[in-house]
Design a protein around this nucleic acid. Structure first.
Lengths: 126, 126
DNA sequence: GACATATTGCAAATCATTTGTAATAATAAA
DNA sequence: TTTATTATTACAAATGATTTGCAATATGTC
């Protein structure tokens, strides 16, 4: 009897490498560009789906119709500041216990996660 | 010489009516369902684009690949709590001066807007 | 190395959204 | 009210992101 788990394959190595290289939320197109078509787009999508489910990567959307992914790294939980002009991204860390507690008090939802993004112009684009 | 501005047309009346009816962020598909194909999808898209630019409607994304729109009504600025199971949406209002001020202090970005969404399970789905 | 099966690449399908264009409808001017 | 002007529509087709089916391939186990 043969039982096998999740395999460490070329696409998985490469997608991880790409995410590590950028260390910010990137689109599938960006990953593909970085990997120069070494693997198929569908493999990138499938790998990201897997990484999401395994809590290796996190998915975000900034409102331009493409999902972005970044490694859940030593950075820990954080939010983003996105430049509406050049797309530059800055990380933001903040203490948000109060924020969460307020919402938990006001609502009867069982909160699992939250997303907070700021949009504006970076120093260069102002 | 003839100069005309923005016209008050059937699609615009209907899309406004649909948004008012739901009074929560809805997808284009939902608007179209409500309007029973009385107007073309492309008109819905174009109307929403216009309403967005005119600050009549606001666009949000909850991460499922479709944009959602809601009227910028007397509700004022608020955030959302989304049930990951049934999709139910609850509004949240909160004082966020502190939140914003902290970010503005830490960063050199000129912040224009922000989005904050909470995800979890509503009372019925827990 | 051989087997069992997880995973890939490829092609095609799907879904949301955008766009070009001729026909239509809304409004200003006559 | 009628006409002239042009913003806007419906329709069809295009685009872009993502998903899916499947035969071929690669990985890990024995």
């Amino acid at each position: 009897m043969t039982k096998i788990g999740i395999r460490y394959t070329k696409p998985r190595k490469l997608v991880f490498e790409a995410l590590a290289h950028y260390s910010k939320p990137v689109s599938v197109a960006e990953i593909n560009y970085y990997l120069k078509n070494k693997i198929d787009l569908s493999s990138i999508y499938r790998t990201l789906e897997l990484m999401k489910k395994s809590n290796i990567a996190e998915e975000t959307e900034f409102g331009d119709g493409k999902k972005r992914y970044e490694l859940i790294s030593e950075k820990g939980h954080h939010h983003h500041l996105i430049c509406e002009n050049c797309g530059d991204i800055e990380d933001i860390k903040m203490k948000e216990d109060e924020l969460l507690n307020k919402v938990k008090t006001k609502s009867k939802f069982a909160i699992k996660k939250h997303k907070l993004e700021f949009f504006g112009l970076c120093p260069n684009c102002q």
